[in-house]
Amino acid sequence: MNTIKEWLVIAFDSTHQALRAEMLLEYAEIEIDLFPTPKGITAGCALSIQFQKEDLANVVRIVKEETVEIRGIYRNEVHGYVTIE
């Protein structure tokens, strides 16, 4: 059975926070992708991080423990991005 992975997106208000989150999540061995913030998400930073939905709990824990400032965590739906955290 083929499993399709659902990806979530973290948006930031600053490049510094995006790069800091990238370092922390990579250190925690969470599969991520740093990419341009989608047009459907309003953020102060041009960079976002994409990660797999199955890693949500770990991502939220790391962001909170390390006090990373984020705009929000989003899921891409048919009609655009929806805030989930």
Rank of each mutant, 00 (worst) to 15 (best):
residue 1 M to P: 04
residue 2 N to K: 12
residue 2 N to L: 02
residue 3 T to S: 00
residue 4 I to Q: 13
residue 5 K to R: 01
residue 6 E to I: 12
residue 6 E to W: 04
residue 7 W to F: 08
residue 7 W to I: 14
residue 8 L to F: 07
residue 8 L to S: 04
residue 9 V to W: 05
residue 9 V to H: 02
residue 12 F to L: 02
residue 13 D to Q: 05
residue 13 D to L: 01
residue 14 S to K: 03
residue 15 T to M: 01
residue 15 T to V: 09
residue 16 H to C: 01
residue 18 A to Y: 02
residue 18 A to H: 02
residue 19 L to E: 10
residue 19 L to Q: 09
residue 21 A to C: 07
residue 22 E to G: 00
residue 23 M to Q: 12
residue 23 M to Y: 14
residue 23 M to D: 12
residue 23 M to S: 11
residue 24 L to N: 09
residue 24 L to T: 03
residue 25 L to N: 06
residue 27 Y to F: 05
residue 29 E to Y: 05
residue 31 E to I: 00
residue 31 E to Q: 08
residue 31 E to D: 15
residue 31 E to C: 01
residue 31 E to L: 03
residue 33 D to H: 15
residue 33 D to E: 15
residue 33 D to F: 09
residue 37 T to A: 10
residue 40 G to P: 09
residue 40 G to W: 06
residue 41 I to A: 11
residue 42 T to D: 14
residue 44 G to P: 09
residue 45 C to D: 08
residue 46 A to V: 06
residue 46 A to N: 09
residue 46 A to W: 03
residue 47 L to W: 06
residue 47 L to E: 13
residue 48 S to R: 00
residue 48 S to P: 12
residue 49 I to G: 03
residue 49 I to K: 01
residue 50 Q to M: 11
residue 51 F to W: 04
residue 51 F to V: 00
residue 53 K to P: 05
residue 54 E to S: 08
residue 55 D to W: 02
residue 55 D to M: 02
residue 57 A to T: 06
residue 57 A to N: 08
residue 57 A to K: 13
residue 57 A to C: 06
residue 58 N to F: 02
residue 59 V to Y: 10
residue 59 V to C: 13
residue 60 V to D: 14
residue 60 V to W: 14
residue 61 R to M: 08
residue 62 I to Y: 14
residue 62 I to F: 14
residue 64 K to M: 00
residue 65 E to I: 03
residue 65 E to N: 06
residue 66 E to Y: 09
residue 67 T to A: 11
residue 68 V to M: 05
residue 68 V to I: 14
residue 71 R to W: 02
residue 71 R to K: 12
residue 72 G to T: 03
residue 72 G to N: 03
residue 73 I to A: 13
residue 74 Y to G: 09
residue 75 R to V: 15
residue 76 N to D: 15
residue 77 E to C: 08
residue 77 E to M: 12
residue 78 V to I: 15
residue 79 H to L: 10
residue 79 H to E: 13
residue 79 H to D: 13
residue 79 H to C: 05
residue 80 G to W: 05
residue 80 G to S: 10
residue 80 G to N: 10
residue 80 G to C: 08
residue 82 V to R: 15
residue 83 T to V: 14
residue 83 T to G: 00
residue 84 I to T: 11
residue 84 I to V: 14
residue 84 I to W: 10
residue 85 E to Y: 13
residue 85 E to T: 01
